[in-house]
């Protein structure tokens, strides 16, 4: 089970309404390399992970990604909150507005809705760990492209924090991969 904590993992602030930035940052909410994809990927893969350390890593990183999902949502929500319609139109967010007003919805930066096809659960724990390491790198790259696009230093600060978490997650999945190879070899020889 999970327990909700009424606070963000890292504080979020925005300098003002910025639908242009909201439009691209939303990809880390409902995009292929976003936080929902990350969380659901790990939390789904853990059932066929044979290694105790691996079960813990997938559960704990999958849980942390939920906290990141909330941070990204808080960014998008606050960047849209007081945005005037003129600004929304100028940012090309009028199509989103037509379907969702300023509500949060699970889409990538081009408006494509989230799909389970973004994640894989292969049943081979080594294959799954390679997918997870690649996913962390893809998320890290996305945060770098978003930092390049950001014109709000408060937002950049949050993107920078989230990017560094992907570096740490990559390391933990990499260590799990080492343990997984040891585990596989032990099973093979004894």
């Amino acid at each position: 089970m999970w327990v909700y904590e009424k606070k963000l993992q890292y504080p979020v602030r925005v300098s003002g309404p910025n639908p242009q930035l909201a439009k691209v940052i939303i990809t880390q909410y409902g995009g292929p390399d976003g936080e929902i994809s990350a969380s659901l990927r790990y939390l789904t893969q853990r059932y066929t992970m044979p290694l105790p350390q691996g079960k813990a890593v997938l559960t704990d990183i999958g849980t942390e990604e939920l906290a990141h999902m909330e941070i990204v949502a808080a960014l998008v929500y606050n960047l849209l909150e007081n945005a005037p319609l003129e600004q929304i139109k100028a940012a090309g967010m009028d199509a989103y507005y037509a379907d969702h007003d300023k509500a949060l919805y699970l889409v990538n930066a081009s408006g494509v809705p989230w799909t389970a096809a973004y994640v894989q659960s292969k049943g081979d724990p080594i294959t799954d760990l390679y997918e997870d390491m690649a996913a962390e790198e893809k998320a890290r790259s996305t945060y770098e492209w978003l930092i390049n696009l950001s014109d709000d230093p408060c937002v950049t600060d949050v993107l920078r924090f989230l990017r560094e978490r992907e570096v740490v997650h990559f390391q933990r999945f990499g260590e799990t991969l080492e343990l997984m190879y040891e585990y596989r070899d032990r099973k093979r020889y004894y």
Binding site: P11, V12, Y77, E81
Partner: peptide, 8 residues
Amino acid sequence: EPWPWEIM
């Protein structure tokens, strides 16, 4: 209130 996302 505030909830975590209501930061402004």
